[in-house]
């Protein structure tokens, strides 16, 4: 699900185990350029391995941490149906975390180590989960926006050059669609309800819109790590490209709900066919 900030710069440069010859690196890059998948036992540059360990473990941690705000709402779900759906979604998130930890383990890092790094704060998770979930509408907004943004990030990861990660993402993406739809459905019902319920939906959108846009990471001009990840085909699209795509598909959905995006600079640009939006704070 949640892939924010995955291209942050590594603060501890790799301690190389064995010197990597320019020939090895060239052969590796040629394989990547030819769209061959890199598998666990294949030779790979140490920096590639470390980048993947960081990205996959942080992705896994985000799935696990993401269960917490939703878990808090289980006992307060408005109906038994909504409770069963939320329970199923949370169970999926646990599953996504497990697929990802397994993919990480193929790179030679143990699950205990990954969890230890999460607990010590060395490994990060998506900061979107540090925002409070104040009302039931927030659970709708998380599914619609947070999972929606995650889908945008994750679909290109299905074609990532590292085989085990790519295959884990195919599984995740298949399951993710239900998550986004149940979120939209929660908000749709609220928007069709009383004025108070609709205001609750608007309030949730007001609070989750900008953090969702931030899930795509820093703007391309500030993202130092992107170029290497693109060359390695770990990343296929830039942060700003994915963010734009997300805005373009989500704004009409908000309009359908009759909700207003909390962005006074948001407007449709006929020429480019894209929505222009305000600066992220």
């Amino acid at each position: 699900m949640y892939t924010q900030g995955l291209d942050q710069k590594d603060k501890n440069p790799a301690k190389r185990r064995a010197p990597e010859s320019p020939e090895q690196l060239e052969v590796f890059q040629k394989r990547v350029d030819a769209e061959e998948k890199i598998e666990a036992k294949d030779w790979m540059p140490e920096a590639y391995r470390r980048t993947l360990i960081r990205q996959i473990s942080q992705h896994a941690h985000s799935e696990i941490i993401g269960m917490q705000p939703e878990g808090n709402w289980l006992t307060r779900a408005p109906t038994l149906k909504r409770k069963a759906i939320l329970l199923a979604k949370i169970q999926d998130e646990a599953g996504h975390g497990l697929y990802l930890y397994s993919a990480g383990e193929t790179l030679g890092v143990s699950r205990d180590q990954m969890v230890a790094d999460l607990l010590s704060g060395k490994a990060k998770y998506s900061s979107i989960f540090n925002y409070p979930t104040l009302t039931w509408a927030d659970i709708g907004a998380i599914g619609w926006l947070v999972d929606g943004a995650a889908i945008m990030n994750q679909i290109p990861l299905c074609r990532c050059s590292y085989g085990p990660y790519a295959r884990a993402m195919v599984r995740v993406c298949k399951e993710e669609s239900f998550h986004q739809r149940q979120g939209f459905d929660i908000l749709r019902v609220l928007c069709e309800g009383t004025a108070e319920q609709k205001a609750m939906a608007q309030d949730a959108l007001d609070r989750w819109w900008w953090p969702s846009l931030m899930m795509f990471g820093p703007s391309d001009t500030d993202s130092e790590h992107s170029a290497q990840s693109m060359a390695w085909k770990i990343k296929r699209f830039s942060n700003d490209e994915l963010r734009q795509k997300f805005v373009d598909v989500t704004v009409p959905q908000a309009q359908f709900l009759g909700l207003k995006m909390p962005d006074d600079n948001l407007e449709f640009d006929e020429k480019s066919g894209h929505y222009r939006f305000g600066e992220i704070d």
Binding site: A88, D92, S177, F178, D185, V249, P252, F256
Partner: peptide, 19 residues
């Protein structure tokens, strides 16, 4: 019996795309 786990369980109103 967990039909709600499938995206098709949710009715997408006409006019809503990319969901």
């Amino acid at each position: 019996d967990k039909i709600y786990r499938h995206p098709t369980f949710y009715e997408i109103p006409e006019g809503v795309e990319n969901l």
